[in-house]
Amino acid sequence: MTEKELICVNCPIGCTVTVKMEGDEIISVTGNTCPKGEAYARKECIRPERILTSTVKIEGGTHRVLPVITSEEIPLDVMFEAMEEVRKVSVKAPVSEGDVIISNLLGTGADVVASRSMAAAD
């Protein structure tokens, strides 16, 4: 049996989570303070996933760029590919928080959404 110590990245509490494994099978997850910690630890041992946050170009807004976030975690190993998709996009103001900017990013099932509202510039 192998034991792995992970730091949960879901929130700034950063729980130290211990995962016991038998080969590829997870036997137990301990040390997490919420269910998200267990889900994180299970994925982390198979294919790590992360939320991606970035910005996209925006035309006619109060700023030059609009912050965006994935609606759920995407595999860590597609981050750079995902960034290429994000870089291609340009949106027009106004935008509301939660507006879908890219749907089903790289077939991951996650959308890229606006993480703030931005009015059109006067």
Partner: peptide, 15 residues
């Protein structure tokens, strides 16, 4: 713009 805000206040992970 990164995530991890609000887990205690809103029980959600926000940017």
């Amino acid at each position: 713009i990164h995530n991890g805000f609000g887990l205690q206040t809103f029980k959600e992970q926000l940017s």
